[in-house]
Design a protein around this nucleic acid. Structure first.
Lengths: 321, 321
DNA sequence: CGTTCTTACGTGTGTCGTAACGATC
DNA sequence: GATCGTTACGACACACGTAAGAACG
């Protein structure tokens, strides 16, 4: 068995079972790849591919099982070269972060600023996706780290660390009647048209559940993945906004006013994760440290007992109440 | 990077950093292995080995990290080869079981008899060891499956299934005064010299704990890993025996009499385990099935809720009470 | 008839083995 | 001086590329 053969196998299935395209991707000619596959199959002694005449159209049962371990092999190869790079060019390389819009826009800037100061040679890439996509991207090694609140907490193939806690706040244009209501209850929120996140993002599910538990249903007139979009429509007067508290920036959102809603909804925990068997380079781990420090700085760091008990802790005081 | 290079790396560390011996183990000449190591090191760009002059004496920090992933690679190679064999020679190969004496002697025979009928071409190897050794053997792929009660339950790198439950029984020569005591309590057991298992085996720790909890200490005059040894000394009149109930065989132990002690000690759960990322061949999995069926047959099968709650279930009635 | 894979064949790379040299105990 | 490692060199293997042939839509 040779690594080339394994690489050809992977390239084949990742390119729709076209030998030619696999060869192209590997910078080889097609007969070479053909030979790899043939030799691998003959060494294992059992057909790996379903064929239609000469054409390969899929994997056999045996082929499917082999594929999983073949990917494992190449993952280990990638880990080893990553270790090499880690010692050769300590501060050079790429940091690929998969995250959601809210993190990328409101949390990461401060952390990445400090990170880039420390590692000016590292190219930081931010990829966005839904939490479910982020899991896939992490497992496929398309990103090094994933940061989000949903989906990565208890995946068996991910290692995740709780980072910080957040809750929601209400935003509305200055002078909006809801701002004078006191106290603000779930019932109050239901009296006004609401703008918030779409399902699958930024705790929308927990939000809806909180209303459902007491038999209420908010009038959500618009939902978006993107806090900036929500703010825009709130400014337009389309409704009140319920957003992640981190996403309210008094210095930029002077035309809006916010109210803390942490008494109404459960706290969310944002986590940072990487694939379980992946070698995390030093500067990547350093980024994780910086991220945790940033959480400390905000006073929102999740301490491990907190994460387990879900207790409520310190809250910042950016809300004018 | 080439598989040869990885193999040479592993062989080197597994042979005390002697290039010559590594080469010998790989059926290569020494300069070949030297070249593998040199090329690997130069490709990664960082020293992997600590040297004393020309001699290799250990791994650098980077080398140590690489080694772990190198082993992972070869493990995947072994898995792929195993898949091949599984489809080529369905019913041929080896089944290497690591277990303790009690299992090998009293539980496995019945299961292996049925297994060998179904797979006459499979060579079954039984290796014995302490539970801690069994864990190491399983992780080092020296055995395919491990069967024991201690140590394998919650190891993160093992997959283990609860199989059957057992408890202890008292054995003594016919006519021994303890046999007429009723009921038998922990206190009664402490009145006689006792013979049982050594620590680390067959639930000895739980046994001692049960006595300690009520402030008692049995007079253990002899302990052994081996139930047969215990029986022998019980026959000699050296004391009463406390053994796993499965190990009492009325048909062969006619000169001894037994009493159930399951009201005095917690139930133990014997588990069957394999390394987490190991490909388990079909006939090996079939053996696991047979093992579980055997547990069913004895009426001792651990149902999952049982395993979690530790509740007591059906007990066989081999004891003359 | 174009696309796709296989077969056939030559070339060049590179891996291994032999042999000589150097260092370390 | 014996053991263990490296360097040097030659032979063989083999992996890749080119080119031509066969099956499929």
């Amino acid at each position: 068995m040779e690594l080339r053969q394994i690489r050809s196998l992977i390239a084949l299935v990742d390119h729709g079972f076209s030998v030619s395209r696999a060869a192209q991707a590997l910078h080889l000619v097609q007969p070479a790849v053909s030979q790899h596959l043939r030799l691998l199959e003959s060494e294992l002694g059992t057909p790996l591919f379903r064929r239609n005449g000469k054409r390969l159209v899929g994997l056999t049962e045996a082929g499917g099982k082999v594929l999983a371990h073949a990917r494992g092999m190449l993952a280990e190869v990638a880990n080893i070269v990553a270790i090499g790079r880690d010692y050769v060019e300590e501060g050079r390389g790429a940091l690929r972060i998969g995250t959601t819009h809210t993190q990328a826009r409101y949390v990461l800037p401060a952390v990445l600023h400090r990170f880039s100061d420390a590692y000016p040679e590292v190219e930081v890439q931010i990829l966005q996706g839904t939490p479910a996509q982020l899991v896939d991207m992490t497992l496929a090694d398309q990103v090094d780290l994933a940061i989000c609140t949903e989906a990565i907490g208890d995946h068996p193939l991910l290692v995740s660390l709780p980072s910080y806690r957040w809750n929601r706040c209400l935003i509305a244009p200055r002078g909006h009647p809801v701002l004078s209501r006191q106290p603000i209850s779930l019932g109050v929120l239901c009296e006004y048209p609401m703008i918030t996140y779409v399902f699958g993002f930024t705790g929308r599910r927990t939000l809806s559940t909180s209303f459902a538990k007491v038999g209420l249903r908010p009038k959500v007139v618009l939902s978006a993945v993107d806090t900036d979009v929500i703010k825009t429509y709130v400014r337009e007067g389309m409704g009140i906004g319920v957003i992640a508290d981190l996403a309210f920036q008094p210095e930029h959102d002077g035309d809006l006013e916010a109210r803390d809603l942490s008494h109404l909804f459960p706290w969310e925990v944002t986590r940072i994760a990487h694939a379980k068997d992946k070698y995390v380079r030093r500067f990547q781990r350093r980024f994780m440290d910086l991220f945790q420090q940033h959480a400390d700085h905000l006073g929102r760091r999740v301490r491990i007992p907190d994460a387990l008990t879900g207790g409520s802790g310190a809250v910042d005081n950016r809300f004018g109440q």
